[in-house]
Amino acid sequence: MVRFASLALFVATWFLASWLAGERMLPGPMTVAAALAVEARSGDLFLHLGATLARVVLAFTLAMTVGGAIGYAMGRLPLADRLGDPWLVVLLNLPALVIIVLAYIWGGLTEAAAILAVAVNKVPNAIVVIREGARALDPALDDVARVFALGRWRALRHVVIPQLAPYVAAAARSGLALVWKIVLIVELLGRPNGVGFEIGVAFQLFDVTRILAYALAFVAVILVIELLLVQPFERRVSRWRVRPA
């Protein structure tokens, strides 16, 4: 209910702002909705949303896998931490734009270069969060796994990963937001489709309506992912926590 009121307030503010600023600078919600309908009917909307979503999924999966593995190793092994830490600081502070431009120069304007550039931007972020999780692992539970001879994989699956789950959820949530923003830049700079490409075209035409239509459509997609995947995952991994009755 509160959420609904909050959403209604947002739309009302939008109407008001559009009325004050004029349709050209800030088209109202109805104009944007109409533009969305046109794009949807022509099929363009789904083509571009699909292309962007595919890049987000690939880059996100790649970054979480690589970042998770490196972060876990750095959290567990002091030597890996000392070796990796300077690299991590460099990567964390390298601007996304530099990585993207270099990836396109070295790899050409290809899909692989685009996805790799996005993943490289997200990896240090995943490393930092998962490393923190690995540092917080309970050595008492490691002892249990060793004494009862659980074996490497069962210990990882049943003792380590459940402890990392809240950190994975945190990295996933911030990662999803970061990845889709960078995917748009990658598309703007060197891809022939996707939401970022469309926004680039709209920018050249000063078509604010189309910019808003595509941005909102993709935000909606991310919201659905959050509601259908991230939040249920969090609920599932924290179902054992005692809740106040």
Binding site: A140, L141, V147, F148
Partner: peptide, 13 residues
């Protein structure tokens, strides 16, 4: 080996 530690050390999840 079966071991009982000083604390129960159960997996909370």
């Amino acid at each position: 080996i079966g071991m009982v530690f000083q604390e129960p050390r159960l997996l909370p999840w």
